[in-house]
Nucleic acid binder design. Structure first.
Length: 966
RNA sequence: GGGCGCAUAGCUCAGCCGGUUAGAGCGCUACGCUCACAUCGUAGAGGUCAGAGGUUCAAGUCCUCUUGCGCCCACCA
């Protein structure tokens, strides 16, 4: 019932300014209730699927979303019209840390912490938040016009998707690709959780490099020191060694000795390790295995501090953790003076104390790269802790294979390298998070057998990681009331689930199939466990998806991992094409961000100018993979274009139709030249837009449509059509109406993926009578017709040239718009050219402001006195024409001379360049014959042109009327 | 330390496979509220395609280097 609203579809109510807001809301509601976003089960062509990059439930629509979803919607609407069963699966991401942060902030306003609330209550509270606010972003996507199938909307914490997460975790575990390790991880003291390497943002920070003396024990001289340099002096409280390069002469004989650790009552050994760069600083490094990744590795290699997966009794030295999870200094192992201090306060105090003891050699300014939490920007504290990991090497190989076997294609292609580089240097993925909002890890422990202190020190048995008393399984199994016996003690004692949740991306990487592949209403975990995912009808029909549209920032987080997951769990890639679009920036090159206060809110743009304006402007700017620099003003392009289209339609639809219908016959022989010209242009544009969209060249498609509709259709054809509709010959008037409507209707269809609302509204007004319920969304994508009037193209272009030239002369000599001029056209009379002009006399008269048009067929003709002249060059299929416009007293001799001279300047430059090119034997010898012939032809024509202008200039000199009137 | 992108009109950007006269939008100039549109029309001005070298008959387009800007990756204590 899209166009049945009388207020919207009555052409007489057309306002001269397009106002989108009411129309957009009405149409979107009609589309959605009409079920038009669902894939057509009877679609003539195969499925075309996109899964949305799920926005965070906490999100609000920003320009990045607007870009990303506009492009997806353009593709989906295009493919839907082409007859594909187009499916765009929408949904949102539970965004573990981000969402937890939001709700924690809300609690804080009530003076509560999540700890006070307790885990269960807190999680309930987050769900409540999600129910209340989680649909914000999907509502905003609707305002953008996104034609997602909302009946298939998913959430990463849905029942089905949660089972997918569990099932995939278990499959990976059984394949020996999941383990727990006591490793150094990225720890955010603010969020109090571990993060993956990808979640750490490295930023340059201005800091200091402190050089500290560590006194050598039993040295030859009592004052012997080793000087170490550090950017984080507070970590020295956890030092367990000093390392030097084995070849470093400066420390020969020192290795194996001990130094006294200042501020602490401990002695630590000097060791040697290849990882130490002797050229850096003093060549001696303090080793803090519990708080630095490099030190951790050195520790593992040389001190056997942390034998991986070995029982605790084998430890010889314990890495010393000196910080609490919140970034304050720990109680254990830390001298009392520093206990409980914030890490940065502690840093100051350590430096001051060292200085007081004269152990601080120097303090240098030092800029270095420091890791920050990607959610809260807090400086990361590398910390030793037990975490779950995915072994990535075997999975990465699947991702690499996808590219090598041409199963996967990046557009633009250069991202392939970025993707491969990451996969080739992949490290294991830390997937456990110490937060409460997310998918809890499907691992349980026997309360009698598993102790916290052994976590992360399990063994590999039969290719799988095991800890004493550890059970891996589905929630349903474990909580079924009949828990399995502990594999270690054999007793059915109480089982405790691992408190950690999984990285949000652990659910996201399953998105392309978890959204399609979970059978509705299936409950039995045991049956799903071994055959997951199910071959649901949706999975069968729509997987693999067709294309992924996303930004470069999540190639590692998401794209690469989805490829791996798809190949691992389903043995098939999740998508064939990956279109990587640019990043939104503001003019000046900065990132658009809230903190910089330079946000341009897409919703505000939609409010003010309409979703179509926003979408078209974005698409117009989105040339292949380039970043977009936005400013408010750039959306005027789309707004003005929508308005132009609206008014053109107003002209076509708002006036009384000429009575009677006339559908032109085959090859459009009964149409006028302008009719055939505009229809020919339309064929070209149809082909161009289709090809551009097939190749993801969005801006190219948008530009072609803009050029065609605005300049070809409105500027030229509509002006001519006005005349044709006044024709006494009823047939001409009738076919003009037909052409106008045909061209408009096809244009609307071509434009629909970009500007869905205005095209629907106008299309519907055209169609309301015949099919009130039809929607342009389901109208067929235009196919170019087989006929092209290329001859007509040449003639019409000559007409355009002629009119433009006369207008130019009028403007140059200041002929008032109301004043008419007369025009003499001289042509050589080749073929049927002498007849060309006659039918278009009225067009020329109207568009060029001519009252008397005379055509002279003659080899030469004298220039009428006191006139301006112009010479149109010969073209293939068209001879050279001379134009003469008598101007009487209006002619300014100097002006005309300058005009001619300028024209000749350009021509002569080109003549010169062509002559020299043709004089070059290399060119004649090696260039293709047709190129040479074209050059020769064009040189001949240029020379003829020059001759004509020269002649005109000469005639002017002897022209008495051309003399200065003053 | 690696890698990538960008440098074209005053501004923001197009320009696929190298081949006539390098395009658009905005801005600017002149004129025009002509009965679809002033969110408009007509005409126009404005470019050594960052610099240097190379490949080629031919380079904005391909190669190398340089400069400037931006981004990504990396265990620079």
């Amino acid at each position: 019932m899209i166009g049945s609203d009388p207020t919207g579809s009555d052409p007489k109510s057309f306002s001269s300014v397009y106002s989108p807001s009411e129309i957009e809301a009405r149409l979107y509601a009609a589309w959605e209730s009409g079920g038009f976003f669902k894939p057509d089960p009877n679609a003539p062509r195969g499925p075309f699927t996109i899964v949305i990059p799920p926005p965070n439930v906490t999100g609000i629509l920003h320009m990045g979303h607007a870009l990303n979803n506009t492009l997806q919607d353009v593709l989906i609407r295009f493919k839907r019209m082409q007859g594909h069963a187009a499916l765009w699966v929408p949904g949102t991401d539970h965004a573990g840390i981000a969402t937890q942060n939001v709700v924690e902030r809300e609690l804080a306003k009530e003076g509560l912490t999540r700890q006070q609330l307790g885990r269960d209550q807190f999680v309930k509270r987050v769900w409540a938040w999600k129910e209340q606010y989680g649909s914000t972003i999907v509502q905003q996507l609707r305002r953008l016009g996104a034609s997602c199938d909302w009946s298939r909307q998913r959430f990463t914490m849905d029942e089905g998707l949660s089972r997918a997460v569990e099932a995939c975790f278990i499959q990976l575990y059984e394949a020996g690709l999941i383990y727990r390790g006591y490793y150094l991880v990225n720890w955010c003291p603010r969020c109090q959780t571990a993060l993956s390497d990808e979640e750490v943002i490295h930023e340059e920070v201005k800091g200091h490099l402190w050089h500290i003396r560590y006194p050598i024990q039993g040295g030859q001289t009592p004052s012997a020191f080793v000087v170490v340099a550090t950017t984080r002096p507070e970590t020295m409280l956890g030092d367990v060694a000093v390392a030097v390069h084995p070849e470093d002469e400066r420390y020969r004989g020192q290795v194996g000795r001990f130094v006294q650790l200042p501020l602490c009552d401990r002695n630590i050994p000097i060791i040697s390790d290849e990882a130490v760069d002797p050229k850096f600083g003093t060549g001696a490094v303090k080793i803090t295995p519990a708080h630095d990744p490099v030190d951790f590795e050195i520790g593992r290699r040389h001190l056997e501090l942390i034998p991986s997966n070995a029982p605790r009794k084998d430890w010889t030295v314990i890495p010393i953790k000196v910080m609490n999870p919140d970034g304050t200094m720990a109680r254990a192992n830390v001298p009392p003076a520093y206990q409980g201090l914030d890490r940065f306060e502690c840093r100051k105090k350590v430096v001051a104390d060292l200085d007081a003891q004269e152990l601080l050699v120097k303090t240098e300014d030092y800029t270095h790269s420091v890791g920050h939490c990607y959610r809260c920007r807090t400086i990361i504290e590398p910390t030793l802790s037990p975490q779950w990991f995915v072994k990535m090497k075997p999975l990465a190989e699947l991702g690499i294979e996808a590219v090598q076997k041409d199963q996967l294609r990046f557009i633009p292609e250069r991202w392939t390298k970025v993707y491969l580089d990451w996969l080739n240097n992949i490290r294991d993925w830390c997937i456990s998070r110490q937060i409460w909002w997310g998918h809890r890890i499907p691992i349980w422990y026997c309360s009698g057998c598993n102790r916290p202190e052994i976590q992360g020190h399990g063994r590999w048995e039969n290719g799988r990681y095991v800890e004493p008393g550890m059970i891996v399984g589905h929630r349903e199994e474990i909580k079924s009331g009949n828990p399995p016996p502990c594999p270690t003690c054999g007793k059915k004692v109480s089982l405790l689930q691992d408190p950690d949740v999984l990285d949000t991306w652990f659910s996201s990487w399953l998105w392309p199939f978890s959204t399609l592949g979970w059978p509705e209403g299936r409950g039995e975990a045991s049956s799903s466990r071994s055959h997951w995912p199910e071959e649901t009808p949706d999975l069968k029909r729509f997987y693999p998806t067709s294309v992924l549209v996303t930004g470069q920032d999540i190639i590692f987080f998401w794209v690469a991992r989805m490829v791996m997951a798809g190949k691992f769990f389903l043995k098939r890639i999740p998508f064939k094409d990956v279109y990587i679009h640019g990043i939104i920036r503001v003019e000046g090159g900065k990132k658009m961000s809230k903190s910089l206060g330079n946000i341009i809110d897409p919703l505000e743009v939609i409010d003010r100018m309409g979703a179509d304006a926003l979408r078209f402007s974005i698409a117009h700017m989105a040339s292949e993979g380039q970043d977009l620099y936005l400013s408010e003003g750039k959306f005027l392009l789309g707004r003005n274009f929508a308005n132009k289209l609206w008014n053109a339609a107003r002209l076509i639809l708002g006036t009384q139709l000429v009575p009677g219908t006339a559908v032109p016959g085959t090859n459009k022989v009964d149409l006028t030249l302008p009719d055939r010209w505009i229809l020919t242009r339309l064929q070209e544009v149809t082909r161009g837009v289709t090809e551009s969209l097939e190749g993801y060249r969005f801006s190219e498609a948008a530009r072609q449509l803009y050029q065609f509709l605005w300049h070809d259709f409105c500027d030229w054809y509509l002006e001519i059509a006005k005349l044709q509709r006044e024709e006494k010959d009823g047939a001409v008037a009738q076919t003009t109406d037909w052409v106008l409507r045909e061209a408009l209707e096809r244009s609307l269809r071509l434009l629909h993926p970009f500007m869905p609302f205005i095209t629907e509204e106008l299309w519907h007004q055209m169609r309301a009578a015949e099919s009130p319920k039809a929607t342009i969304m389901k109208a067929p994508w235009p196919e170019p017709e087989s006929w092209i009037d290329s001859e007509g193209l040449v003639v019409f272009e000559r007409l355009q040239e002629l009119i433009t030239e006369v207008r130019n002369i009028r403007a140059t000599f200041g002929v008032a718009p109301k004043d008419k001029v007369s025009l003499t056209v001289r042509l050589a009379g080749v073929g049927r050219e002498k007849e060309i002009l006659a039918p278009y006399e009225r067009i020329i008269q109207r568009l060029a402001g001519v009252d008397r048009l005379e055509t002279v067929v003659a080899p030469t003709v004298n220039r009428p006195s006191a006139s301006a002249v112009s010479h149109l060059p010969a073209r293939p299929g068209m001879s050279a024409w001379d134009l003469m416009v008598p101007l009487g007293g209006l002619v300014d001799l100097d002006l005309e001379r300058r005009r001619i001279e300028k024209e000749m300047e350009g021509l002569e430059a080109r003549v010169k360049s062509k002559r020299s090119r043709l004089a070059d034997p290399g060119f004649r010898g090696k260039a293709p014959a047709d190129v040479v012939a074209d050059e020769e032809e064009s040189l001949r024509e240029l020379e003829a042109q020059v001759a004509k202008w020269t002649e005109s200039l000469k005639q002017m000199g002897s022209d008495p009327a051309g003399s200065d009137p003053s």
